[in-house]
């Protein structure tokens, strides 16, 4: 983890963008096409099957909206963490990162409750292709939330010691991307009925 082991290649910046941030942008680019693929497929099917409206009516908009609120707020914490990291205040940056991770945890908790309710009402992943898309797309997103939260906590541990503060921004970019995916999932799965 120490920067002494870091190769010189990592320290150069011919483009002017720090290496880590450049790499995160490429991660985001490749994630766009992953989510793009599944959402494009979903939209095609959804537009073709008017009957899915009946299914979509069973999703819980309130819970979806609360989860959107949770993720938006966690994004705010992530960017506040970044602001503190820029100012060199590792302790406060770590505090905000942990709040962000907490937001992720709340999101997952609410999601679990929501899925539990839906599954117990008989809307399982196999009951209809709408629900297959619903669970698959949101599940893929939830995996990203979980992974992001874990990385947030790891980075917060270092940041609290004022180490590797540039990573605060990197995880922030990723977290905002996950947020943006949800911003689109929310109307696609919940609002459009």
């Amino acid at each position: 983890m120490s920067s002494a082991a870091r190769p010189i290649a990592n320290l150069r910046s011919a483009t002017g963008i720090p290496t880590g941030r450049l790499a995160v942008w490429w991660v985001v680019a490749s994630e766009i096409v992953i989510f793009g693929g599944i959402l494009a497929s979903y939209i095609m099917f959804r537009l073709a099957h008017d009957a899915w409206t009946v299914q979509a009516a069973n999703t819980n908009t309130t819970i979806g909206a609360i989860n959107t609120f949770v993720l938006l707020t966690s994004s705010l914490f992530a960017v506040l963490g970044h602001a503190n990291a820029v100012d060199g205040n590792g302790k406060r940056a770590a505090f905000f990162l942990r709040l962000t991770a907490l937001g992720g945890a709340i999101f997952i908790a609410i999601k679990s409750y929501e899925w539990y309710t839906e599954i117990s009402h008989g809307f399982t992943i196999t009951s209809n292709t709408f629900w297959s898309f619903y669970y698959t797309a949101a599940g893929l997103h939830a995996l990203h939330v979980i992974a992001g939260a874990v990385i947030l906590l790891l980075i917060a541990r270092d940041a609290a010691k004022n180490l590797e503060l540039h990573r605060v921004e990197l995880i922030g970019i990723y977290w905002h991307f996950v947020d943006i995916v949800w911003i689109f999932l929310f109307p696609l799965l919940y609002i459009a009925k």
Partner: peptide
């Protein structure tokens, strides 16, 4: 990187079809 994304999504769906019983 730009082309494999949709197939990764597709592979997830195919996996679900094989193992979970969805009907994508």
């Amino acid at each position: 990187m730009a082309s494999v994304g949709p197939l990764i999504a597709g592979a997830v769906m195919l996996f679900m079809d094989q193992q979970v019983g969805t009907h994508f």
